[in-house]
Design a protein around this nucleic acid. Structure first.
Lengths: 333, 333
DNA sequence: ACAATTCTTGCAAGCGCATACATTTAATGC
DNA sequence: GCATTAAATGTATGCGCTTGCAAGAATTGT
């Protein structure tokens, strides 16, 4: 039982196969009358053009490889949904892959190449230099989302980590916090690294505040509890903590309240990252960072599409501002 | 600058194009020696077979359409990641689409057909009957995940909602709760409907317990607070609440504690759904339902692959057991 | 009414690969 | 060493569509 194709429609309507093809090609040279006859017959027989064949002859697949490397991200689903829907607006489809035990990042990039994707979006990962040049050679644009890779031949859309760091430092200093701990995951993105660095710079300038520890571990509520306990056993305790995930920050707060009798925000200011819904709950009231997801996504897709349409575009490096949401987990100015 | 193809390799190595093709076809008839020469040349020139062309001639694309309709699901990312990775194991790629303003569920199904997908996985949605028969006619299997559609010509993998309902009812009755409220979203999946129905049946049998209200609204923490307040204004108050999302349940608990001075679990038992990490936090300690995600995903992909390999398989309807996680938000027996 | 122009349509050659079939080469048996 | 069989390769066609080119039909101007 073979699938119905354009030739079938052609013979049925009594035109050539090429004409059928034209009926489905917007802007092709075809009279309204025959076009309608063809479209009628097609819908009657349930015919739809074979996109694979079209891709082959046009050598463009209308597919975008989406390499999604961080499913643990609190907003992972939002990012992916946004990407899919935004791509849809431009009539692209998302071919989603994620690196795992069997397939590394570069393997997936090669897969995408085999599938003749028109472009690739990478969430929280980067291709090797080799891959990057392979893609450049084939004129297939790559956009890194949530990561800035200035050294690669690729566009990147991320948050302005340095600016964010400066703003955090400013708020902390103006609230007379002076001994900061930063709690972040080990294999953390360079976003966090940049942020930490610029906080440190500001602190150095102010002369009074300093970063006393840079604890690394894992994400999560329990990790937060664990973390604050350990810190409270050290001789030099922080009076402010920045956690690179809201969950961890909430864990820290819980640890303070339920286990250690530390007053948040008076004895310890806590800042999270991500502005998850839980953070806003009144019994948590966590100061945190709101990431401009929608803008990140829009820019990512827009950049990609622009680079597809104009292959001679320079890669675009874009950093969007993240918002600091001040709530009750740090004291007033 | 045209892409390099099998013919290029063929002339370079001095063999026919067909032989190059064979070098990349596992199990094809080709000598180890020439195969190596070809593979060498290929990797030297960075050649990789064009999967699009292969799809066309084999009329199978190795792509699975994934129609993802519920990004708000607390475990959305996990589901999608699981699907992608599991598909990868079978050498399939996921073409992910989600219904939105411009594209309805059926439109996406038609898209998938154009892309010659080998099968479709649907998360929290169902195709129309028409689509279902179109697919059946083309021998393209559909598997519904998180939804059971017994009337359609499709497989479905979901949780055993009735069984879950019975277990809940049993636990509630044995703990002498007798006036249950069920808080669920309006457009709720039939999973919830099934669950409610079987609870009701058990309650009727017991003769003493009953469902006093079936409040519908929206998901979320705030909704939960709002909800419990409203219920406490009614003449007949529940002594147990089942929320079809953990967040809502946590809102209810917060409402009880901070606003209404209701003792949980003594005055009111609360049960959530989903077993999100927050639910396990000691200060929440929410009794909830753990969904067997991994099994759902494995079964979904396994079923799909089986149906692809053997097109004459009957659709499979499978219901997996969900686990009730008893914690402190309901009283002891 | 006829030439000049514009629209439609058909024809045919790809796009890059797989594969049935034919042909050549290598391996095997005695 | 020769016949028989198996393995390796080449040839040629098709998968379903797009598109340049040329031929035919319709439109326009004069």
């Amino acid at each position: 039982m073979t699938r119905i194709n354009s030739q079938d429609i052609a013979t049925l309507v009594g035109v050539s196969q090429a004409t059928v093809s034209r009926a489905f090609t917007p802007g092709a040279s075809i009279s309204a009358k025959t076009k309608n006859r063809i479209l009628d017959a097609a819908s009657r027989l349930g015919y739809q053009p074979n996109v694979i064949a079209r891709s082959l002859s046009k050598s463009q697949s209308k597919m975008i490889g989406v390499l999604f490397a961080n499913w643990d991200h609190p907003k992972a689903a939002d990012f992916l949904q946004g990407i899919c829907e935004k791509l849809m607006e431009f009539d692209f489809k998302a071919l989603v892959q994620s690196p795992g035990a069997t397939r590394q990042v570069d393997d997936i990039f090669r897969d995408f190449l085999q599938y003749q994707v028109d472009g690739v979006i990478v969430f929280s990962a980067s291709p090797s230099r080799q891959i990057s040049v392979d893609y450049a050679r084939n004129n297939i644009p790559i956009v890194l989302l949530n990561r800035s890779a200035k050294t690669l031949n690729a566009s990147s859309i991320s948050v302005d980590a340095s600016g964010l760091g400066r703003r955090m430092a400013k708020e902390l200093i103006s609230r007379s916090y002076s001994r900061l701990a930063i709690v972040s995951k080990d294999s953390e993105s360079q976003v966090v690294a940049d942020m930490s660095r610029s906080i440190e710079e500001m602190f150095l300038e102010s002369g009074q505040a300093k970063i006393i520890s840079q604890n690394s571990g894992v994400y999560g509520y329990d990790a937060g509890i664990q973390c604050i306990r350990e810190m409270w056993n050290q001789p030099e305790k922080p009076d402010a903590v920045i956690c690179t995930s809201d969950d961890t920050a909430l864990g820290v707060i819980a640890g303070c309240r339920h286990h250690l009798d530390i007053d948040v925000p008076h004895d310890l200011g806590v800042i999270g990252l991500g502005d998850t819904p839980v953070a806003a709950w009144k019994d948590h009231d966590l100061t945190t960072v709101r990431i401009p997801h929608d803008d990140l996504i829009s820019q990512t897709v827009a950049t990609l599409v622009a680079n597809i349409e104009n292959p001679w575009n320079e890669p675009e490096i874009m950093e969007l501002e993240a918002n600091l949401v001040i709530r009750g987990s740090i004291r007033g100015e």
